[in-house]
């Protein structure tokens, strides 16, 4: 049975916006697709080779946790994670995790928390929080599809010239509330502000992550079938209808 190795990064520090829902979605869908799943929690101080994993999930947290993690990235995990992303590791980084994978996070008092520079992006603290439901249109799947989620961030993220956004905001603020862009995609890594939880009501995104992970590990030999997503699609469509009417 093909196997998917999931890494939950800092689960006890970054879990405030229903990030647990994303892990549940990956694990359940992998099982329903007939895959074997193994979840490993990795936290502060753990030294790991991230290339051994297939999917890495990192969530959002509060200021104190952000600082602890920036330090752990710099001292312990940064280079291993960077190498693994270059190697094709599938990553879903949300909110705080997304910010720390960029170049830097500039706090309200002007201090700069260094990031991993995996994404060509940087974040500056803003005066107000951007809070609410979001609909994004993405080209990630070849044809335009929507993603729905919830954002709650004061950081404004800007993409550099080499960065490719995850999508275009149809409703909500997105990266910075100014340029209509949301998230970033680099190789198999996605950074985004959408939680809510994101993956359960966007099953096409979950399956994209799983397929990319299988392609990396099994070179295209394992193809996912289709599941009955009536319940998920109904939740997705209800939000698209409500927000775009």
């Amino acid at each position: 049975m093909p196997k998917i190795r999931v890494c939950n990064l800092y689960p006890e520090l970054l879990n405030i916006y229903g990030d647990r829902g994303n892990t549940i979605a990956v694990v359940q869908r992998a099982r329903w697709h007939g895959l074997e799943v193994e979840v490993t929690d990795v936290t502060l101080g753990d030294r790991v080779d991230f290339r051994q994993f297939d999917i890495l999930l990192i969530g959002g947290g509060q200021d104190r946790e952000q600082r602890l993690i920036a330090e752990d990235f710099a001292r312990v995990k940064g280079s291993s994670l960077h190498e693994a992303v270059l190697d094709g590791l599938v990553v879903l980084a949300i909110c705080g995790g997304y910010q720390l994978m960029g170049r830097y996070y500039q706090t309200a008092d002007g201090a700069q928390l260094p990031g991993l520079s995996i994404f060509d992006a940087w974040t500056e603290a803003g005066p107000t929080r951007m809070v609410g439901n979001v609909v994004v249109e993405t080209e990630l799947f070849g044809e335009p599809r929507t993603l729905v989620g919830f954002e709650n961030h004061s950081g404004r993220t800007f993409l550099g010239p080499t960065a490719r956004p995850l999508g275009r905001v149809l409703k909500g603020h997105g990266n910075n509330g100014q340029d209509g862009r949301e998230g970033v995609v680099y190789r198999n890594a996605i950074g985004t502000y959408l939680h809510g939880s994101l993956l359960p009501k966007n099953p096409h995104l979950t399956d994209w992550l799983l397929q990319r992970a299988l392609d990396r590990r099994y070179g295209g030999e394992v193809q996912l079938g289709r599941l009955d997503d009536t319940i998920e699609e109904r939740a997705h469509a209800a939000m698209v209808r409500r927000l775009l009417r």
Partner: peptide, 9 residues
């Protein structure tokens, strides 16, 4: 609460 992500906890 307009953010319902808490149901996943």
């Amino acid at each position: 609460g307009t953010d319902i992500s808490w149901i996943w906890d």
